[in-house]
Design a binder for these strands. Structure first.
Lengths: 155, 155
DNA sequence: CGCTGGAATGAGAACAAGTCTCATTCTCTT
DNA sequence: AAGAGAATGAGACTTGTTCTCATTCCAGCG
């Protein structure tokens, strides 16, 4: 790949996750398909959670014209394989964001007035949750923290 | 009330919250009503979150036969007045639980297999979240932590 | 290559949770 | 006891999601 060493961080900076997802799907016995790939590539480009509706709308608008069923089906498969995280932060609709294989992740603050969502991360919080794992009777595999309040604009 | 000093802790142990809720509603200018009271009394008896559907089903089964609209309307009002907490832990449906005026509260572990929900509390976690408040740009008024995994039975 | 069997896809129907409307009933004040 | 306005409930409606099934696509095989 001559000349390909320039600008490793760009619009495709998360292509590693695309590869990862494709490999995981292949391992799980799935065949390739255009709709699924489109969902994966869209999620790869997002910095934070995106609602199922947004994903669906965006992909429907594409010249490919991806169907609703394919979008939801793909999201379900990706969730099953722990490639994406399903979140319910709003009024009864799900959002999705990719799971980094590194384990790196963030949580969310939601404005209860305008619905704006922002990510944040905090090692102290992660530590507190880590310490908790043994104490609850469950075998915990993931966690989710949502803070609610007013964003600077709405406060 | 002669003889009423026996057994202060019983099925009505949370009647203080009922009073609190009634007072708050009156302060907010609401009139009394049977449907609303029934919702309040049902929530007062629960130890943990209950889905809107369950609440509705239970109250519909009553000889009072409370309507769906009243149930949802009441839940919305109670949420607005910070008398109950709305949670979304499952597949797209809301649960509600009362907010103690003392600020005492718990969080939840959900079994991703069977859907069982259990409460837990942890001061360390609360401290970590408390420390966080200033750092996110929002004016945080509440928070919610959900752990997911396998319950002992499903593990 | 072109076939073929099973997987992936998309249009639209079906479903479930929640919301809205509006006629009736109830509360509270006078 | 009456009137004004709030609370209620039946049922229509909306919205996000899931299901169905006929069609299209992919991948191994001759």
């Amino acid at each position: 790949m001559p000349g390909a060493t320039v600008d490793p961080v760009g619009p495709n900076r998360h292509s590693a996750w695309v590869e990862h997802a494709i490999a995981a799907l292949a391992d799980a016995g799935y065949q390739r398909g255009g709709a699924r790939l489109a969902v994966i590539e869209l999620l790869a480009r997002q910095g934070c959670a995106m609602t199922a509706i947004e994903i669906d709308d965006r992909l429907r608008a594409t010249d490919q014209g991806i169907g609703r069923a394919s979008v939801y089906r793909t999201l379900e498969q990706l969730e099953e394989l722990k490639l994406v995280h399903r979140l319910e932060m709003g009024r009864g609709m799900a959002s999705y964001e990719r799971i980094e294989p590194s384990g790196e992740h963030h949580h969310h603050v939601v404005c209860e007035k305008c619905g704006r969502v922002e990510p944040f991360e905090d090692p102290g919080l992660e530590r507190a949750i880590g310490r908790l794992q043994g104490r609850v009777g469950f075998e915990v595999s993931e966690h989710e923290v949502v803070l609610r309040g007013r964003c600077p604009r709405c406060a």
